[in-house]
Nucleic acid binder design. Structure first.
Lengths: 154, 154
DNA sequence: TATTGTTATACTCTATAACTATA
DNA sequence: TATAGTTATAGAGTATAACAATA
C-alpha cells in the first residue's frame, strides 16, 4: 500500500499506489472476467444477478430464499424482487415449506429449466475460453485461494 | 462445472457446483473483503465508488475523466455524476486541459484533501487487520495473481 | 470523422426500515 | 421475542443513446 515513488501523475500514463490494494484488484479481476460473460447474458435477456439466481435454483431445487440470498450475494429485498419477476415470467414457482410456513421454497418451471439449458452451454464455452487464456491450473488454484480467503475473513 | 453428485438440496446446508466458478468466487471474495470497509466508509458519508474516485484523484492530481473511469471501473455517465456531486460538495475542481480542450482535468480542493486524509488512515487500519487475518504474503501473492489474470484476459 | 465528456432515460441493485406471518 | 420474507422508499450505479464541443 505504501509506495515511495515520486508522484508526478501528469507525465505518467498509469495510476499507482492503491492500484495494488486487494479490493481494487478483486474488483478489476471480476470486471475483466464478467466482461466476457455480459454480452451473452444480455443477449439472453438476463442480468448477472438473475443468472446467479437461476443457476443456484437449478442446482438446488426447493432451496429457500435466505440460502439463495447468501449464495447469490443479494440482499433479501433485491432477491425478493428478482424472484417475483421470475415468477411473473413463468420461470419459477414458490411454495410454503411444509416444516416451517415462514419459509418459501423455490423451484424451476419447465420454462425456467429450458432457459437455464439454453444459457448454460453458452456460459460453458466462455468459461472454457477463459481457462485456455489463463491456464486451467491457474484458474483452479485461484478459486481455491479465493475460497480460503473467504473462510479466513468470515 | 459438471457435478455428478446426487442433488437433494433440502437435506444439505450448502449449494454445490457453480460454487467453484471463478466469477462467483471473485464476487464473494470481494463482498467478504468489502464488508470490512463498508461501515467505515458509510460512517464517513462516502460510497465505495466515491472513495475509489477520491483515492485515484489524490494520487494523480490533474488526471482526466477517461483515465479515472478506467481505473475506478465506472462508466463515464456514472463517473460524470459522481464528479458533479463531488464538485458540488466542494471536494474537487475541474478544469479544461490546456493541450486538449475536450479533456477535463480534476484535482482535489483542500476540503477534498482533508476528507481523504481523514479516511485514509481508517482504511489502513482495516487493511492491516485483513493482512493479519490472511497472512501478508497470501495477500500480496493474491494481488499479483489477480493482476496477472487481468493482463492475460485483456 | 473520431473523441471527450455531459445529459437523458429506463432499468436495476443497495440499504434501511416498517410490516406480516409464523415460530 | 426472534425469524422469514415482503414491501416501501431513497439513493445510487448500469447501460445505451443522443448530444455539444473539440480535435
Amino acid at each position: 500500500m505504501s509506495d515511495s515513488e515520486t508522484s508526478d501523475a501528469s507525465t505518467t500514463s498509469e495510476l499507482r499506489g492503491f492500484e495494488d490494494a486487494l479490493p481494487i484488484a478483486l474488483l478489476r479481476a471480476r470486471e475483466t472476467v464478467m466482461a466476457r460473460f455480459r454480452p451473452m447474458l444480455a443477449a439472453n435477456g438476463v442480468t448477472e444477478q438473475q443468472w446467479r439466481v437461476l443457476r443456484a435454483i437449478e442446482e438446488n431445487q426447493n432451496v429457500d430464499a435466505t440460502k439463495l440470498s447468501e449464495w447469490c450475494c443479494l440482499l433479501m429485498p433485491s432477491l425478493s424482487r428478482i424472484l417475483r419477476s421470475m415468477e411473473n415470467d413463468g420461470l419459477i414457482t414458490r411454495e410454503r415449506a411444509a416444516s416451517d410456513a415462514r419459509r418459501q421454497t423455490v423451484e424451476l418451471t419447465p420454462t425456467g429449466q429450458a432457459l437455464f439449458e439454453k444459457i448454460a452451454p453458452q456460459s460453458e464455452v466462455i468459461y472454457t475460453e477463459i481457462e485456455q487464456a489463463l491456464d486451467k491450473g491457474r484458474v483452479s488454484r485461484m478459486v481455491g485461494e479465493l475460497q480460503t480467503m473467504i473462510s479466513l475473513l468470515k
